[in-house]
Design a protein around this nucleic acid. Structure first.
Lengths: 203, 203
DNA sequence: TGTACATCAGTGAACGCGCGTTCACTGATGTAC
DNA sequence: TGTACATCAGTGAACGCGCGTTCACTGATGTAC
């Protein structure tokens, strides 16, 4: 890992980290291989030792973004206090992951964007953790605790995902172009409205 | 409107129409002013008589796409037979516009994409018809007929929009890159699941 | 009806830019004996 | 411990490309008298 000479040490990691910075601040459209190489201080062609094409690099970023999203959902779920009846608690855990999803999108709209950007390149690895997996677990937990009828379990993940993903894209779309206020005060009320509606639909 | 000479006749309309073709088949990213001019048979700079920049042209396309979406919602709503109790009918009209929204996205994913693409340019005109307006009307109608409690009316448009918009983006995202089968057989089941959930949440 | 003239909608060449990717190459590293 | 050599990770120059936009200009159109 010796830095500073002809060999960089860990160029692959440096590329991903630098690319992540660009994506976070300016979006995936602003990402260019040449600029990345310039920033790191390496020739453009060096990047091609590590990624066969720009699209492969973007696919790596996309995977990473989805994993970060899933991790923030897990963190929110695990922050719910383990008190009171188990059924109610399972619902609160479910609410927490939904809120975390939308808040992640609002906090890092560019990251959220790249997480679900269509790609012609397959993901370089399976997601771990996976947001979908976290969601399914939460719903199974609610069903097991009797918080929702078992008959709802099959459709519930899709319904929940559609609701939170829909609100996320609506809110981030209005935020992306103008870059105005980072946190609109009406956001929380909208989040509550959608989360409540999702839960109502599951009963 | 004389065609064929030094003057084109109606270059603005030709630009919008040609651009629409490109967007429909290859997406807004594939749209370039030079290519458009080439297709129409006019010099690139001629386009700048009608649109101050590429972004202004895209904004015009985006508005047009949103209006087409709204029109297809209206058409679906008005195709619901005027039979049976009025409350039930208002619900069926509401369902129809939600289905139409998602089906529009599936049928024309590129058009749906450009309809909600973030833009740095303000819309050149107010939407007419407006999908949001159509949705709000449908919800007001349900409330007036007693199909849903009045207390739900305030949040209902956001909740419904989040659900159908979310499913639309989920389904089109998986369809955009690979361009595989145009109509997945599981789509209708997913649409049903989400629409049913939205209605359940409004009761 | 004819003509001068303003206006509008085009032309064509150029500016300035940067991109992704490839290719023959070279400098550094590690390994076998 | 020293050395030959394969391998790996870089370099630097170039290819081929196309873009958005501007600018001085010209050809066609319509209008006033």
């Amino acid at each position: 890992m010796a830095k500073g000479g002809y060999h960089h040490g860990d160029l692959e990691a440096a590329l991903v980290d630098s690319a992540m910075q660009v994506v976070l601040s300016d979006g995936v459209g602003a990402l260019t291989v040449r600029d990345l190489a310039r920033t790191i201080g390496v020739s453009p062609s060096a990047a091609y030792r590590h990624f066969p094409s720009r699209d492969h690099l973007v696919a790596a970023l996309s995977l990473r973004a989805r994993e970060e999203l899933a991790r923030s959902m897990l963190a929110a779920r695990d922050a719910v206090p383990a008190t009171g009846p188990k059924a109610g608690r399972s619902v609160r855990r479910f609410e927490a992951i939904g809120r975390a999803y939308i808040r992640f999108a609002l906090r890092q709209p560019r990251l959220f964007e790249v997480a679900f950007a269509p790609s012609s390149v397959p993901p370089p690895a399976p997601e771990h953790p996976s947001a979908w997996g976290v969601l399914v677990d939460a719903i199974d937990e609610m069903a097991a605790m009797g918080a929702i009828p078992a008959a709802r379990s099959a459709d519930a993940p899709l319904v929940a995902w559609a609701g939170v993903h829909g609100l996320s894209t609506i809110l981030t779309a209005s935020k992306l172009p103008s870059e105005s206020g980072l946190h609109h005060s009406g956001d929380e009320a909208m989040i509550d409205a959608v989360i409540d509606a999702v839960i109502r639909s599951l009963r």
